[in-house]
Design a protein around this nucleic acid. Structure first.
Lengths: 346, 346
DNA sequence: GTGAAAGCGCTAACAG
DNA sequence: CTGTTAGCGCTTTCAC
């Protein structure tokens, strides 16, 4: 065993097995130019000595990276958690190891993470861009790094990179159309932060749907907030405080999390979601089906998006060079109880 | 720039800045034996050449690892997701980079991940042991690796390592005592898999509470399942099918996820949770407060546990050598609507 | 199949 | 402060 460090090295294994270092190296990697017998001997020594292959040293020599950076805005959010699990599945299948980072939507943290990932020689990066910060600058810098990048969830304005996401505008239209069909005319749009493209896309779908139905768009019914339970509750409070709230019979929420907050607040105020007021969410998180009333929602295919992002990155890392491409998933509306009013106890 | 690889190296920077490689190395690490002026020159060259520090090469030379492996059972589960975010916070604060792995509770996958992490020279590992697989063997092997390990959530039988978790037994007692105080005598325990220590601890708390209150323990009311929504729904179905179900007035669920499944199923069957039947969960996931009825639950401090695990690992990585230690959090009961029956519409 | 030697990019040790 | 040298653990020639 080498002197200073306690680490058992390939040379130790070679000596122990009575072969050369080169042979041992080939044996551990199961090269076919090594006889079965030698491999077995090497394998025995490995086990006896407790040798662990040093992928870091190997990676230094080789130019190939088997590690991938995944930078998310916020682990802990059910949507990103599900996306994460999709990414993980596809990357794991291809044998990559993932380095995880969370920016908490801060641009500065994002830049730091990006550098760190590069310093660790990741072979590629999957990024959910942070809402805050100078996006174009970081993306330009990222491009300099010459490493494959797949952006997801939040479409960057400058399109150097692959993107996978869903058509938020279409999703919003789906939701609002459904509410209109259910007879609603005063539909609020609650939650989400205005400067996120995810929000802008939704508001645009919301407006389109209303305009197509020749319903007036009332700016007062659009109340942004952080995309959290608390944000939802807050925007709901603001909505209820409006003078023309009494006309409002339906709420389209930025996402399910917001919807949960809104519904909790409504309950607090003695207003029954799904009875007095129609509610519809976005993301179709697993909880939405189990809620009472069950929450109608637009699927955003988090897990598929993640999987696709992983797959796309893998392709790029194989050296497939084409123009940046966008994969946009089409949302679906899942109608449950919260959006079909059935006022049984009038 | 070096010939084969496109990578800009420290030597390139040194040449460009007109200093020696050693100086450049010291400069990038902000050593105080380098003059401010030289640092600035080096920094300028770095930016001009687009140099990125190679932490992998540095780590090979240094013996210090700045990366940590986090091996979870299932990302995507809200509880583990929250734990993850706690771990991430504390580790990130100390400047570690985390390698993420998910075993999906498979022992084999766990072993493979453990090896992979070691191959990447992680400086420490945080592990939620998989339910399935030969635990003692893997832990013994892990001990061989000579790397600090903190286990969490699932207490391993062999105690080589630090452990952070909560007192599930006490938590279960808290929950069941509360139900008893509310006047219930036939209390079911639904969900969770029997061979998990987390389940065994709970059942033991459940029994203790009943016995202390001199209430008979009815084995038929204990129905395990996978710890998922579906599992909850399934075990609930089984419960309702029992002959003596009519006596049963309360359900203690393995965790909130199970409780959500149970409540959904009850609703489906026309039984109103929180009115016809008391329900109590475990983990106090964010959703529990927003549910309707809001779900009483036992907090399991996921985020704190994660943070503590990260902190403990950090200490170990600093070389603090003491006997393995367990940090057990005391659970708290959060009483909400689901467990205090108020049959307003009789 | 083997052994020697070079080199991935970095840091540490030491003499200037 | 500088330059040189050695070496972290591995892989890859290239002769034998």
């Amino acid at each position: 065993m080498s002197k200073k460090t306690g680490r058992v090295t390939l040379l130790d294994v070679a000596n122990h097995a009575g072969v050369s270092r080169a042979t041992a190296s080939l044996a551990v990697r199961n090269s076919k130019s090594i006889s079965k017998k030698t491999k077995e001997r090497v394998q025995a020594s490995i086990e006896e000595l407790g040798y662990v292959y040093d992928r870091v040293a190997a990676g230094l020599r080789l130019k190939k990276a088997t590690t991938v950076g995944l930078i998310m805005t916020d682990i802990g959010n059910p949507f990103t958690a599900e996306l994460l699990s999709g990414v993980y599945r596809s990357l794991d299948k291809e044998g990559y190891t993932v380095l995880l980072g969370s920016t908490f939507d801060e641009g500065e943290k994002q830049n730091k993470l990006l550098s760190t990932m590069m310093e660790y020689r990741v072979g590629g990066i999957i990024l959910i861009p942070a809402a805050e910060g100078d996006e174009t600058a970081t993306l330009a810098q990222l491009k300099q790094f010459q490493v494959p990048v797949v952006t997801t969830v939040k479409k960057p304005t400058s399109m150097y990179f692959d993107y996978v996401g869903i058509d938020y505008e279409a999703g919003a239209q789906l939701a609002v159309n459904h509410l209109i069909e259910e007879g609603h005319r005063h539909i609020a749009f609650l939650g989400g932060s205005e400067n996120a493209t995810a929000w802008q896309d939704r508001i645009s779908g919301y407006k389109k749907a209303l305009m197509q139905a020749e319903v007036d768009v009332l700016p007062s019914l659009v109340i942004p907030s952080t995309a959290t339970r608390e944000g939802g509750a807050k925007s709901c409070e603001d909505l209820v405080a409006l003078q023309d709230f009494s006309d409002c019979t339906a709420i389209f929420c930025f996402n399910d999390i917001v919807a949960f907050g809104v519904m909790a607040k409504l309950n607090q105020l003695g207003i029954k979601p799904g009875k007095d007021l129609a509610i519809i969410g976005f993301d179709n998180t697993p909880e939405s089906g189990t809620f009472n009333p069950s929450l109608s929602s637009v699927t955003s295919h988090a897990s598929e998006i993640g999987e696709q992002a992983g797959f796309l990155l893998h392709s790029r890392m194989q050296g497939i060079e084409t123009a940046p491409k966008s994969v946009i998933y089409q949302p679906e509306l899942i109608v449950r109880d919260s959006s079909t009013l059935q006022n049984k106890n009038p």
